[in-house]
């Protein structure tokens, strides 16, 4: 810690405030676990009901772009960790650079996702599309429903994360590194969700 952290009502000591912020954010992450958990539950049921059809649908998911995105997000987690620890150690140049790198990687993820969506749509891989290649195939249709639903929800989470990370650039980080700490917790959580989605969406096909 380089300088005295800014205290916010009702706290009187930095340690207590930090504990509360981390605890509060983890409570929020617990809600996120249950939120995505509801989805994973439906996914598990659907896959068990028709594993063959499911795999048939999943085989059409773009493994290359999905894997590129996994690496991008993994790397962004690493850079944001550097940013947070640099801010806490008072190394501001490092922190700013790492935050910018994180923003770039996160944006790249969304851009790749956009290209992937365009390709999926050009191949009519949308369950309501008239030329949907799997119409009538239960497992594959449900796979593509889940694919679109959960990648959109994940992208919304990531966009919110980008906003929170960008906000760090405008903060007095040497005195408000606690904000950086809780922001990274959220970002890493979104990363973990993707690490779980990657095999569920891209690796169940081959």
């Amino acid at each position: 810690m380089s300088s005295t952290p800014i205290l916010v009502e009702p706290f009187e000591e930095p340690e207590r405030q930090r504990e509360a912020m981390v605890f509060g954010l983890w409570l929020f992450l617990a809600t996120e676990i249950l939120f995505f958990g509801g989805f994973f539950f439906l996914y598990a049921v659907a896959r068990m009901q028709d594993p063959v059809g499911f795999a048939k649908g999943a085989a059409r998911a773009n493994l290359l772009l999905g894997t590129v995105n996994t690496v991008l997000l993994m790397t962004s987690s690493a850079t944001l960790t550097v940013a947070e620890r640099a801010a806490q150690a008072g190394w501001m140049r490092g922190a700013r650079g790492a935050i910018l790198a994180t923003l770039a990687l996160g944006t790249a993820f969304l851009a790749v996702k956009g290209f992937e969506y365009r390709e999926d749509l050009s191949e009519h891989l949308f369950p309501t599309s008239p030329a949907f290649p799997f119409s009538g195939l239960v497992g594959a249709t449900r796979f593509w429903s889940f694919y679109w639903f959960v990648t959109i929800v994940h992208a919304i989470h990531l966009t919110i994360g980008l906003g929170c990370v960008a906000r760090l650039l405008r903060l007095d980080l040497p005195r408000r590194w606690m904000v950086a700490e809780v922001t990274t917790l959220y970002w890493h959580f979104v990363d973990i969700i993707w690490l779980l989605l990657w095999p569920l969406l891209y690796l169940v096909g081959p």
Partner: peptide
């Protein structure tokens, strides 16, 4: 239109 609970597709 994502058929998630739609009985027609399982």
């Amino acid at each position: 239109g994502l058929p998630i609970f739609d009985p027609r597709v399982g």
